[in-house]
């Protein structure tokens, strides 16, 4: 199948794509697109899917329209796919895997989180 789908990769997931912001994928459903991503960039499936559904708190937009059908949503040819946090008032966030910030990397790599920049006292 032609890799005619453009997936916009959230910054936090770019370690999976060697830093690429967008990657091509194939598929006519979100499930197939995730499989296509997984084949080329291992880790997407584990990041996005729990059981037979998208992980809670995530939403997928196809051509900028959020898809409540999740993995079952149809993907037309040449579509754009965005991976987004589910939007709701007081949207939550939680996990067991930390993100790249606050990683064990030099403080210089975390410019926005240097404690002295936040301390107002």
């Amino acid at each position: 199948m032609t890799a005619d789908i453009t997936v916009f990769v959230p910054i936090g997931m770019r370690p999976l794509t060697d830093g690429l912001r967008t990657v091509p994928a194939s598929g006519r459903t979100i499930a197939e697109v995730v499989d296509s991503l997984e084949a080329n960039y291992p880790g997407f499936h584990e990041s996005l899917v729990e059981g037979n559904r998208l992980k809670r708190g995530l939403t997928i937009a196809v051509n900028s329209v959020e898809q409540p059908l999740g993995l079952l949503a149809k993907v037309p040819p040449n579509a754009e796919v965005h991976i987004l946090p589910a939007m709701a008032g007081g949207q939550d966030c939680r996990a067991t895997i930390p993100c790249r910030y606050h990683a064990d990397v030099p403080a210089s790599a975390q410019p926005t989180l240097e404690p002295e920049k936040w301390s107002r006292r």
Partner: peptide
């Protein structure tokens, strides 16, 4: 700290420090 979108990205050693973020 976890990433709101890619909060389940697998990987090792991505930060061990406890935080309020």
């Amino acid at each position: 700290t976890v990433e709101m979108v890619a909060r389940f990205v697998p990987g090792e050693g991505r930060g061990e420090r406890e935080t309020n973020i």
